[in-house]
């Protein structure tokens, strides 16, 4: 057991180090600009005063190391600096939108994950059946579609033609829960379609990968039914790859949400990110990148730990 504990701690440490390095990357990316970063960002037409103001805002007048430690300390305390574009504190800009985005991602994830796992297992069970082939073509098509294409198709049919759902997800802090669900239904559906296809395909592949292994043939030769072979003998060993797939797709939700939010004018931080990128609002972009990266790293860490814990070779050492 101590071996496992050490492995898990190692992973945690590694995750922390990764996070630190990523924060350095995000912070230092500004340094990649040749010449004066403030001038570069504002363009040649900017007045010297505004350039100086930006330089001060980005603390460019201090040595990089001091700036980084200050920045990191401030971040840790929830102070993400102020936006260049409108001078508001970044934390204020982000906080309410972050909630909206998490709501949307959770909405999609709660539907997509169980659905996709069920369909993926079913496809593996009924390998080469009509259902499996149809599912394969459907999922391949779904993952080939750009998210905005799916989103607009949903708008065209469910909103414009049938008038079932609003095409614009107008959500304010005062919107009640049922209304929120209703208004964010279309964006959630668009996200669901995208990740369901991915998870389903990869779940099926993870299971089918095992089918050629001798112990699966042994299970058959012991007289296990196809259902028992998949649910008992294969699934237990496919757990780690499947968890990995799910986590990968949950992490994808965080980025896929950007496009869907733009299409549906959903007030999440994906849209804030896009706006800030086009305005080259560095502090906002840095803050959002850091938050998303942190989520992503944590999710992957979780998948890593699950695969350690579910591996009998590691759990029960010789």
């Amino acid at each position: 057991m101590t071996g496992i504990a050490r492995l898990v701690l190692q992973r945690l440490g590694l995750g922390l180090v990764t996070l630190l390095i990523v924060s350095v990357l995000i912070f230092w990316s500004v340094e990649l600009l040749p010449g004066d970063a403030a001038q570069e960002i504002l363009g040649q037409s900017a007045t010297p005063e505004t350039v100086a103001a930006l330089r001060h805002q980005l603390n460019l007048d201090q040595p990089p190391m001091t700036r980084y430690t200050h920045w990191l300390q401030a971040m840790a305390h929830g102070d993400f600096g102020t936006s260049i574009a409108n001078g508001l504190p970044v934390s204020k800009l982000i906080s309410e939108r972050l909630g909206n985005t998490l709501f949307l991602a959770a909405f999609a994830g709660i539907i997509a994950v169980p659905l996709a796992l069920m369909l993926g297992i079913l496809a593996a069970l009924l390998r080469n059946s009509l259902f499996d082939r149809a599912a394969s073509i459907f999922t391949l098509t779904a993952i080939s579609f750009p998210e905005f294409f799916v989103a607009y198709i949903l708008i065209l049919f469910l909103s414009v033609k049938l008038g079932l759902f609003p095409s614009i997800s107008n959500i304010t802090p005062s919107t009640d829960f049922a209304e929120r669900i209703y208004r964010s239904f279309l964006p959630a559906l668009a996200l669901t379609l995208a990740i369901t296809a991915h998870i389903m395909r990869m779940t099926r592949a993870a299971l089918i990968n095992l089918f050629s292994l001798p112990y699966i043939e042994m299970a058959r030769l012991k007289g296990a039914s196809q259902g028992r072979v998949v649910m008992v003998h294969a699934l237990r060993n496919a757990l780690a790859p499947i968890v990995n797939v799910v986590v990968l797709n949950l992490a994808y939700l965080v980025t896929g949400v950007v496009i869907v939010e733009v299409v549906f004018v959903y007030p999440g931080f994906g849209r804030l990110l896009v706006d800030s990128v086009s305005k080259r609002d560095v502090p906002v972009v840095q803050a959002i990148c850091l938050i998303i990266s942190m989520t992503y790293i944590l999710l992957n860490l979780f998948a890593d730990i699950v695969s350690i814990v579910s591996n009998p070779r590691l759990m029960h050492a010789k």
Binding site: T255, V277, S278, S293
Partner: peptide, 22 residues
């Protein structure tokens, strides 16, 4: 590569586009 892949690709792209412009 591990470090680069620890961050979602789109996020990295957006960050770099912010800095370098499109």
């Amino acid at each position: 590569v591990d470090i680069i892949m620890a961050v979602p690709g789109l996020i990295f792209i957006l960050l770099l586009l912010t800095i370098f412009g499109t």
